[in-house]
Simulated scan of single mutants.
Amino acid sequence: MKIKILPALAVGVLLLGACRGSSGKYEAINNSSSADSASVDSRAADTSTAVQTKLVKTADMRFKVKDVRQTSENISTLTAKYNGMVMHHQMQATNEGSQDTRLGTDSIMHISLFTMVADMTVNIPPNNLENFMNQVAQLGLYIDSRKMNIDDKSLEYLSSKLKTQNREELVKQQDKAKEDPSRLLVAKDDIVDRKINDLKTDKDVKYSTVVLSFYQSKTVIKEVVANEDTAAYQPSFFKRLVSSFSYGWSFFADLILGVANLWAFILAAIGLWILVKYYKRKNPALFRTIKS
């Protein structure tokens, strides 16, 4: 009886060992799959941490001021204070009309009506942007419009970086395989363009661009200038009449003096005339012969 029980116990032990072995293999497979999933999660975590925050801030403002010229100087001072830089500055005055009022024969009052506007583009570090905009707003009489935008270019920047790496690897492979030089040059130029765009993004992140437009009320300017019309400098009629009499007498006196300077010729002419008369009276036949 005992001999019959022994084979049954041996079979039971073998079945138990087989079950344990299969369970061990199942645990190993589970551990392997969990390790793979953990490695995938770690790669995803590495990718997420590799995303650099690239926030591009821009702002613009249009406002009215009391004095455009003074406001331009104040904005330049504020820009330097907040470690920024003026990139563009244009100031323009538009003449709305003018009028001349005669003050005398040699001067006129020139009255001009004009409007003055100015445009400025400045780069400001993003951390100082809000304070800078508030300081500029205090320079205006009132604000027409004010706007600030934040553009998140983090994913675009990461995408450009990864694509640049892919193209660099492709260029290395094509270079080793001695591909067509023209195609290789196109790929290299594309890499350069992407790197330049990335540098531009870095610059936009480092400095925020602020566009400012301001103006003042219409201004009236009065100034006394010389009269450019030469006809206005002519004397009046009575002054010219008196001047004519004076000039006529002066001309007559000059004529008398000129005649006086010719007295010798006048006496010679008179003497010659008397002599001719005398000979004509003494020898009338001679003069008749000359005439005939």
Score class of each variant (00 low, 15 high):
residue 5 I to H: 08
residue 6 L to F: 14
residue 9 L to I: 10
residue 11 V to N: 08
residue 17 G to K: 03
residue 18 A to R: 04
residue 22 S to K: 04
residue 28 A to Q: 09
residue 30 N to A: 15
residue 34 S to A: 14
residue 34 S to M: 12
residue 41 D to R: 07
residue 45 A to D: 13
residue 46 D to W: 10
residue 47 T to Y: 15
residue 59 A to D: 04
residue 63 F to Q: 00
residue 64 K to R: 04
residue 67 D to M: 02
residue 68 V to T: 02
residue 68 V to Y: 11
residue 76 S to F: 04
residue 79 T to Q: 00
residue 84 G to R: 01
residue 91 M to H: 02
residue 95 N to P: 10
residue 96 E to W: 15
residue 105 T to D: 10
residue 109 M to C: 06
residue 113 L to K: 11
residue 114 F to G: 02
residue 117 V to C: 15
residue 118 A to N: 04
residue 120 M to V: 14
residue 125 P to C: 03
residue 130 E to Q: 11
residue 132 F to K: 00
residue 132 F to L: 02
residue 149 N to M: 14
residue 154 S to A: 02
residue 155 L to V: 12
residue 161 K to I: 01
residue 161 K to D: 02
residue 163 K to W: 13
residue 167 R to G: 15
residue 170 L to D: 07
residue 177 A to H: 06
residue 178 K to I: 07
residue 188 K to S: 12
residue 188 K to C: 12
residue 191 I to F: 04
residue 194 R to W: 09
residue 199 L to K: 07
residue 202 D to C: 05
residue 202 D to S: 04
residue 204 D to L: 15
residue 205 V to Q: 05
residue 213 S to A: 09
residue 215 Y to D: 13
residue 218 K to N: 07
residue 225 V to E: 01
residue 226 A to T: 10
residue 233 Y to C: 13
residue 236 S to V: 00
residue 237 F to R: 05
residue 241 L to R: 08
residue 246 S to E: 08
residue 254 D to S: 05
residue 255 L to G: 06
residue 257 L to Q: 06
residue 258 G to L: 10
residue 269 A to M: 10
residue 275 L to V: 03
residue 276 V to W: 15
residue 285 A to I: 05
residue 289 T to A: 12
residue 291 K to G: 15
